[in-house]
Design a binder for these strands. Sequence first.
DNA 1: AATGAATGAGGATTCATTCAT
DNA 2: GATGAATGAATCCTCATTCAT
Lengths: 191, 191, 191, 191
Amino acid sequence: MPKLGMEPIRRDALVKATIAEVGAAGSLDVTVSRIARRAGVSSGLAHHYFGGKEDLLVAAMRHILTGYGAGVRSALETAVSPRDRLVAILAASFSPEHFEPHVITAWLQFYLLAQTNPGAQRLLRIYHARLHANLVHALRPRAGARAPEIAETAAALIDGLYLRHALGARPARPAPDLRVLAMIDSLLVNA
Amino acid sequence: MPKLGMEPIRRDALVKATIAEVGAAGSLDVTVSRIARRAGVSSGLAHHYFGGKEDLLVAAMRHILTGYGAGVRSALETAVSPRDRLVAILAASFSPEHFEPHVITAWLQFYLLAQTNPGAQRLLRIYHARLHANLVHALRPRAGARAPEIAETAAALIDGLYLRHALGARPARPAPDLRVLAMIDSLLVNA
Amino acid sequence: MPKLGMEPIRRDALVKATIAEVGAAGSLDVTVSRIARRAGVSSGLAHHYFGGKEDLLVAAMRHILTGYGAGVRSALETAVSPRDRLVAILAASFSPEHFEPHVITAWLQFYLLAQTNPGAQRLLRIYHARLHANLVHALRPRAGARAPEIAETAAALIDGLYLRHALGARPARPAPDLRVLAMIDSLLVNA
Amino acid sequence: MPKLGMEPIRRDALVKATIAEVGAAGSLDVTVSRIARRAGVSSGLAHHYFGGKEDLLVAAMRHILTGYGAGVRSALETAVSPRDRLVAILAASFSPEHFEPHVITAWLQFYLLAQTNPGAQRLLRIYHARLHANLVHALRPRAGARAPEIAETAAALIDGLYLRHALGARPARPAPDLRVLAMIDSLLVNA
DNA sequence: AATGAATGAGGATTCATTCAT
DNA sequence: GATGAATGAATCCTCATTCAT
């Protein structure tokens, strides 16, 4: 008697197990078997549902990015002023769940995967584009034509702070979002 | 007597082959055999001289960082004013040879290695500390007590721009060093 | 559902192939691949079930010792007098199947393994303790307090005769069990 | 300027290093490089002098057996009565230097080598024959025609006690030589 | 005589993937 | 749908051996 409706449950369990396992290992050198065991299923099932290891990794990446996107959206909903929007984006980018060690590690690993895997690359481009669009939209009223350029600098700073954190640097003071905000404000002032 | 003095030659060839191979593959998944073949020696020799695959990778990382350090030092020698120093550091950080695809890729890969390999981690810490010290030294005259904080932001921006470049983003306009410089200037003005 | 219940079958086949292969080679320098091929499976499976080469060797050792233990037990069941017990132990110790070349060779090789492998060492201790206990039990009625000492001498003689046989000495006259028996009787007479 | 007369010194150093290394490792899995390093020469020289690894091992075995033979001879020189001869042989067989861990281990390992290496086998046969001849000669006056048989049992007991010691059994009480002597005496009494 | 350099075959081990049931 | 069985290619690493100098 096959259980019905198990597929989404299994897929979800596998994706979460992948993130956890990648984070725990601190590397993409994770075996499908380990992931499957953590998800409580056989390794064969992982292939059955995802086709292969990389596809599983990409699915995990998509999961993270989706969560990030949802976070930004919900944060933006309550924002009124342009500056509110900026604060919301930064808050979402540096929300605590993103800084959980296993997530930040997974994120970094996926960066790498994107260098060889088209699916991962596509996802990353979408993330970049979305972040850029959000920033530009929030900056436009105050920065005008300089919005794209400042958005790019801000995005780079976000990633750089992330990277440093992932590499074990002492947590920055002030908090990363405030730091980015300060930089943006500074750039805006010196038009 | 045997052919003497081959060791440094072989080590050098193997290190360079490692960088080239890692860069070409876009990943650390490079076999020792391929590296050795590119260096024109047997795989056994690579182990003989370096002990293992990771040690070889760390040696390659050290090679890159040494080159970077030398670049900064020589650039700083001709600097007079604090601002010259800043420009020199940034120019070295974003010098063209650092942006050669296989170097930038290798760099990124080594970031990853640093998450599991102690030797790599140590190297990375040294690089971070040195960059920080250089920036603080150049900023002190103009930034005073704010120097460390601004140095951290600048370092993060440098890494972030690097990362984005490695991930295939369109080359930034203006050039990354000018962008960092502008940001620093902006922060300095708004004391 | 998959083909079930193959594990014990494979394990058994691999263990027997190990004994055969070690015996045939006259040394522990046997490759896992050869063992696996003889067992009709892939080398990967051997690792899957046993974890590694040494564990496979230890499992083979255990198989031999288990067979020996069973032989002694069944021989002891029909023994009535103490002397019967002694004869039974010796008969089992020198039973023909123990003198099959590949078994005796494997046995000797395992002695060696026991010098470095904890699992093998444990097994060997168990064998020693069991043989000693059996001998003491059989000797007690006739030897009293001297039983342990005579048992030790007898055990050493058993192993020595075995060793010499393994090393290619001409088969002893009279048969080894009778020889040990004669020695024990002699020691018992000269209280 | 090649040093003259170095050959015997080198050979000797290599042989001793071999015994030490085999004993230390508790196995024949010793690399030629390690042996050479311990002897203070290059691995190439070991091959130059001995031709190969096994030949080096056989040479080490010969060294041990030669020492044993010399010990027996010198011990026999002062023996007067047949029983003295017996005591002398046993004392030499169980002399302390034979029970040094690395020697006893090497000895056991060489047993193994003898199963595949003709040179080692030949040496072992010589050792067996010599021990047997010595024992028979010492036993003849008291045992007459039974001398060969008793000699065989004694030899087996010697090897068995050795083996047990090598395998880590608690040192026997009484001392092994006395134990063998007691057994022989017992067999002689019960003609 | 002696060495360091260099090789390359060989082996243990790992793992993604496939498949019969 | 789900599993355990099984494979075998791939890779790191070791080491005896050879060789030019």
